[in-house]
Design a protein around this nucleic acid. Structure first.
Length: 876
DNA sequence: GTGGGCACGC
DNA sequence: GACGTACGTGCCCACG
């Protein structure tokens, strides 16, 4: 059976261009439309497995339609040059993929597609049309389906005749009548003014066609409508004509010529590499390979059998290779050292057996350039080495220079700075099941290349940091913080395993009971954890009203279920099942799984070079999302205990740090005054937004005010606020307006920062952390709006992150100075958690708030609340 | 192995 | 007027 795929090339290119941010490769060539187009093609090839393919393009500005209506597409904006310059690349891509393309003078892509789809239909073929243009739905027929891009570029909705009927309630061919009435502003087709989709469909359902409506105009209900139709008769007929795809266009190609096979050439792989589509390479059957220019670079490697003084210089790039992502468990593969004396590879056994080498690693007076200081410190510590003398972390530097850079691998950092001789780890070791460690000679070569690049990169990155005014952010904040975090990770947090296990047993019993009840209420056994099965039960079997749909089916999220509460007893049970199930799988079973066998503690990994705002993140396990808001979940914290008897857990959190930062940055008098007077900020906001006095603030007002503050801090939209408060978007927008009226300094800040971001291309935090926002000038409303909210939010959230990081570095020094035994263990964005002997409590109660509050001086005081107890749970 | 849906924290 | 809307991590399911 032949399967033909016809693609609206012009439409998809246009769509891809606007759907994706303006990407470019290292030569500055724009690639977003090519990339989007290509991912769409690959998806189609993979899912449809076509035997024949054609991409049709519009031939030029003038088409036969302009003869009847010279203003056709008259309001179209000129194609942006950033897109035009990508069209030849798309053509080249198609040629290399072996996909035929076609354009015809005076005809549009639609007409070519229409004509060929009907020829194929006659020959008994199956055809799929891929487009972003709803007009093409008129082609839907037996054996012809139309795929409309939905959001982005690779997500599509398939329309067969039934689906068109379901969506529009008319036959596919009546799409042209619909267009006749509605018109189309993007093509400058007038239609009948005042008639939209709803009215047009009503008319077509009643009369059948546009012509039939005009033949029997008297039967049309509504005087106004009748007048509008009468006055625009000619225009409606013309509009229908313009919207009609010519299925008899003079297309001079045979279907057989469109044969397609998906075995791709090396030339295509080369083009992908040139355009930096590395993530797509394996989809066309190419591995990420080491490029020739990289391989050809000759580097002399000295394999070290005996450690001597000569290779241990005052300044070196040092690499300790650990393959396991989780460096608490990672084995060391080997070391490389590159300095002015040479390029050395030191096998693991040689390195670990040498006291000379160990002493050098532990020598704080030598300057070591590393790629990931925290990983190196921790990994070596597990092998008994106290790494010191770290001077420069390549990864951290790259992150500070541009956190949005998607790839901070050494090879990528190097390549962006014209250093091409490093292999990417993925290309060298392989990924997934194919990962393996090559023979020692190759490994030595790889590691030495990496260290060599590190040595070469250090001055380049230093220079960039300096240009960005980020030297002190780097050397005085992030570098010292890496060491502090390493110590926290190594120390780990002790866990009372039995507490977790007991909670697990209790939870399992409750879950079993709940499951039984739910199955009974449903009348059938099913998997409650499957949103798909749950949706079928709720909305098909029990016929509950559908509140929201996801792209794959019914939404069963908590906010949907909450709206269904009361309509069926099963809902409450499901909500409870979900809540307890989450606790059990993520927090009980999940945490038990990651207790380190050697220490019986949990050692998280902080990601210091990941988030766009400068916050840390925590993985393996994530200790930054341990439940607190609901009591059942909060109990999990009872399992987090001090590592020594007679010790306690001590917690200290910043109160409203983001809003204080906002008061400072925005220099808002009202907000500054509120903080200086020590007011409850949510109550204060409620007073201002609702215009009431202190004692008139109801709990609902305060809740709403709190959500508005939350929105300001996290940069959510009016839509986001409306969702969290369950109010309309308009009401949410009104709240935000009221807020900004009350805090004019904040309003000015919001306006100014967006302007500044447009001008500079980036925003910064108090300590010069930087976030680029290229989309702030996007023509796409969503992208632009998002960038604008990010511009407002990042300086707030990022500065708060700067402050707590600074406090952590200071705290580590202070604990040492005071010779306290207390250990700093965890950071949860605005909170620090310690363990300490009881006799240090009184001292900590003074020192910890003092260090945190004095981390930085703002126009408002910083406030810290501290508490302690037997477990993390009790430190509240 | 991957993407989607969901839920946890800040 | 629609668009699709704080971030990050991890679980389970369903798909190939």
């Amino acid at each position: 059976m032949n399967k033909l795929v016809l693609i609206d090339g012009s439409g998809i290119a246009y769509r891809a261009f606007f759907a994706l941010p303006l990407l470019n490769n290292d030569k500055g060539v724009y690639t977003n439309a090519v990339y989007g187009f290509t991912t769409m093609l690959l998806k189609i090839i993979e899912t449809e497995k076509p035997t024949h393919m054609l991409v049709a393009f519009d031939a030029g500005k003038t088409t036969f339609r302009h003869k009847t209506f010279k203003e056709y597409k008259g309001t179209r904006q000129k194609t942006p040059p950033e897109l035009s310059e990508q069209l030849p690349l798309i053509r080249e891509m198609l040629d290399l993929m072996g996909i035929k393309r076609y354009e015809k003078e005076l005809y549009e892509a639609d007409d070519i597609i229409g004509t060929l789809s009907k020829v194929a239909q006659k020959d008994g073929w199956t055809t799929k049309v891929v487009t972003g243009d709803k007009d093409l739905l008129q082609l839907v027929d037996k054996n012809i389906t139309v795929s409309l891009t939905r959001k982005g570029i690779t997500e599509m909705d398939d329309y067969d005749p039934e689906k068109v009927m379901e969506r529009y309630e008319i036959d596919p061919i009546r799409i042209i009548d619909l267009k006749g009435f509605m018109g189309d502003s993007s093509d400058n087709i007038p239609g009948v003014p005042g008639v939209g989709e709803k009215t047009a469909i009503k008319l077509l359902k009643q009369f059948g066609s546009l012509e039939a409506v005009y033949e029997d105009l008297e039967s049309v209900s509504g005087k106004k409508l009748k007048e509008k139709l009468e006055a625009n008769h000619e225009q409606a007929v013309l509009s229908k004509q313009l919207a009609t795809i010519d299925v008899h266009a003079p297309v001079d190609i045979q279907l057989e010529d469109l044969a397609f096979e998906s075995n791709f050439s090396q030339a295509l792989g080369d083009l992908f590499k040139e355009l930096e589509f590395s993530s797509l390479l394996d989809r066309i059957g190419f591995e990420a390979t080491i490029e020739e220019e990289t391989r050809d670079f000759d580097i002399h490697v000295e394999l070290v059998h005996d450690i001597t003084e000569t290779l241990l210089q005052k300044e070196s790039a040092v690499l300790v290779e650990t393959l396991d992502e989780n460096y608490h468990y990672a084995d060391i593969l080997g070391f490389s050292i590159v300095n002015e004396q040479g390029n050395y590879y030191v096998p693991k056994e040689v390195a670990l057996a040498s006291t000379l080498f160990k002493d050098w690693l532990e020598d704080g007076t030598t300057k070591k350039i590393v790629y990931d200081a925290k990983r190196d410190i921790v990994a070596m510590r597990w092998h008994g080495i106290q790494l010191r003398g770290i001077h420069f972390d390549i990864n951290l530097a790259s992150y500070l220079i541009d956190p949005s850079e998607s790839n901070h691998d050494l090879a990528a950092i190097a390549k962006r700075r014209k250093i091409h001789y490093v292999y990417s780890d993925e290309a060298f070791y392989g990924k997934g099941a194919k990962q393996h460690i090559p023979e020692e000679e190759k490994l030595a070569d790889h590691l030495v290349r990496k260290a060599h690049a590190m040595l070469e990169l250090e001055p380049l990155l230093s220079e960039e940091l300096q240009t960005n005014h980020q030297s002190s952010l780097f050397f005085e904040l992030e570098m010292p913080l890496a060491k502090v975090l390493a110590e926290m990770e190594i120390k780990g947090v002790a866990i009372n395993e039995q507490t977790l296990k007991d909670m697990g047993i209790e939870l399992n019993e409750k879950l079993e009971r709940l499951e039984k009840d739910i199955h009974q209420l449903a009348g059938v056994a099913f998997n409650i954890n499957s949103p798909k099965q749950l949706g079928e039960i709720l909305f098909e079997k029990l016929n509950l009203p559908v509140i929201k749909k996801t792209k794959t089916g019914y939404s069963t999220s908590a906010d949907v279920l909450e709206k269904l509460q009361g309509s069926h007893d099963i809902i409450d049970h499901i909500l409870e099942y979900r809540q307890l199930g989450k606790l059990n799988s993520t927090y009980i079973e999940g945490l038990l799984k990651v207790i380190h066998p050697k220490t019986n503690k949990i050692h998280t990994l902080y990601r210091q070079a990941l988030t766009q705002t400068g916050r840390l993140s925590s993985t393996d396990p994530n200790l930054q999302n341990i439940p607190i808001r609901l009591e059942e979940g909060r109990k999990i914290r009872k399992a987090f205990v001090p590592s020594k008897k007679e010790w306690i857990m001590f917690a200290a959190d910043y109160s409203q740090i983001e809003l204080r930062v906002l008061a400072h940055i925005a220099n808002d008098e009202n907000l500054i005054k509120a903080f200086n007077e020590g007011m409850d900020i949510h109550t204060k906001t409620a007073m201002d937004v609702f215009g009431v006095k202190d004692d008139e603030v109801t709990s609902l007002m305060r809740r709403h005010a709190k959500a508005v503050n939350f929105g300001i801090v996290y940069g959510i939209s009016d839509y986001g606020l409306s969702q969290s408060l369950n109010i309309t978007r308009k009401e949410a927008a009104a709240f935000i307006e009221k807020y900004l009226d009350s805090y004019p300094g904040v309003r000015n800040y919001m306006t100014d920062i967006v302007q500044k971001a447009k001008h500079d291309g980036y925003v910064t935090t108090l300590l010069h952390r930087r976030r680029y926002l290229p989309e702030i000038t996007s023509r796409n409303f969503n992208r632009r709006s998002f960038a604008e909210r990010t511009a407002m939010n990042t300086p707030i959230q990022g500065s708060a992150a700067d402050i707590i990081k600074l406090a952590m570095v200071n705290m580590a020094h202070r604990l040492e100075e005071e010779e306290l035994e207390a250990n700093m263990l965890l950071q949860v964005h605005d909170e620090l958690i310690f363990e300490a002997p009881k006799h240090e409590i009184e001292k900590l109660k003074v020192i910890v708030p003092e260090v945190m509050e004095s981390a930085i001086e703002l126009k408002v005081p910083l406030k810290v609340e501290a508490s302690y107890g037997q477990t993390w749970y009790d430190a509240k």
